[in-house]
Simulated scan of single mutants.
Amino acid sequence: MRRWLGLLLLLPALLAAPRMALAQATAVAPPSLSVELSTRRIEVTTAFSGAEILVFGATERLIGPLGDEVLVLVTGPETAMMVREKTNVLGFWINGDAARFNRVPSYWALASTRPVPAMLDRVERADLRLALDQLPLVQLGSQGAEFRQALAGLQQEAGLWVDRERPIEVSGGRLFHARLPLPATVAHGIYQVQVMLVRDRRVVARQELRLDVVRTGSAAWVADIARNQPVLYGIACIVMAGLAGWFGSVVFRRN
């Protein structure tokens, strides 16, 4: 009798155990974020005039000020760049001090559902480097801050650094998409697309996608010669420039 009484007392706990386990599993389940690119490969030909990166996805919760927020950060392959200061000497502009920057992202663009300072605190923004002034550039040579500002200005003017936060469009409360422009001068290589889900001023989920920008056709052929046989490439450029000048002089002389 006592054994049956003990089993009856344990029965409610046994029935509640699966529900408790399910509740605990639900509590620790990571936030849901599904993202994709419209294309994983962009081909650069001689007629390439630019393109755009289309990122789209969905979240499990509503997107908005009282719900989740979304960030999209796209970075291109790193390169090295030189910034020179022009100095006026007796009416002539000559090269002055110079700074070399290593680990420069050839492309950097940000999109978000709201301004980043309204979504993340200062420490989180610094850790994720969600601003141009937080990029980990290695500066050699002259160390003035004006060289870094000049570099940022040149890249922004070329459309390679998109520092203005482009809005992410939301449909149906949970679907989103972002369009980021790629100029015609974009570098070829592997691009990293990061999509971050923000909740309570913290990044709670993240997905990374790969985008390949490749040269094809005659553009790839010319690039290969310039990289692998620079002497031959230089001679060919000189010969073509000479022929163009000769042809122009013949045409204008006849006229």
Rank of each mutant, 00 (worst) to 15 (best):
L160E: 12
V195L: 04
V44K: 05
Q192T: 15
V28T: 12
P31E: 02
L90F: 11
D68N: 09
R202E: 06
R215E: 10
F147K: 02
T216A: 12
M196K: 01
F176P: 09
G217R: 06
L120F: 06
A244H: 09
G248D: 15
S49V: 09
A220S: 07
A27H: 11
L120K: 09
V83S: 03
N228P: 03
R179P: 06
A17S: 08
A178M: 01
P136F: 07
Q149P: 04
D68E: 13
V55A: 00
W221M: 14
R210E: 15
S171T: 14
S106H: 03
G91A: 07
P12R: 10
T113L: 06
D121M: 13
S249R: 15
D97Y: 01
Q134M: 12
R164M: 12
P181Y: 11
H177P: 06
V116L: 05
N102D: 15
A158E: 11
W246T: 11
I225E: 07
G57Q: 02
Q156V: 13
G153I: 05
S38G: 11
D127F: 05
A223I: 14
H188F: 10
A241H: 03
A17W: 00
G173T: 09
V89S: 09
R125S: 05
M82C: 07
R164L: 12
E78Y: 06
E146K: 07
A29C: 06
L128R: 08
M81E: 08
D200Q: 07
Q139C: 11
A158T: 00
V74L: 10
G189E: 03
E85M: 05
A226D: 06
S142H: 02
V104I: 01
P30E: 11
